[in-house]
């Protein structure tokens, strides 16, 4: 996939609520994070769940979020993070992210 994100890219998770089998947890939708690494392309579970082949495959990333960006009242350390595996089509560029 040529339009892959690269490690270090700032991304925002789509805030949609499709009714199907979605592996992007609700708590992270709409949140902003940074791509850590690319795991490769995998069959799309949103199709596999319905007995479809899950094609085209989707690129899977590890995306890191700061706890404070997920939970504004997080009471741990500022540096604490959550890393989540997210498929390409659930991410959007977050161009303002680098300046925040």
């Amino acid at each position: 996939m040529s339009d892959r994100y690269s490690p270090g890219d700032h991304v925002r998770v789509r805030a949609d609520s499709p009714p199907g089998h979605i592996r992007t947890p609700v708590y992270i939708r709409g949140k902003c994070g940074v791509v850590r690494r690319i795991f490769g392309d995998f069959p799309n579970p949103e199709g596999l769940a319905y007995g479809q082949p899950g094609l085209p495959e989707k690129t899977l990333y590890e995306v890191r979020f700061r706890q404070r960006d997920i939970w504004p009242d997080y009471d741990g350390e500022l540096r604490d993070t959550v890393d989540i595996d997210i498929y390409h089509h659930w991410l959007e560029p977050d161009d303002a992210g680098a300046t925040r």
């Binding site: 947890p25 795991f39 350390e77 604490d80 993070t81 890393d83 997210i86």
Partner: peptide, 9 residues
Amino acid sequence: EVRVHDSTA
């Protein structure tokens, strides 16, 4: 730093 990994995939 606490790093939680939510294995979703």
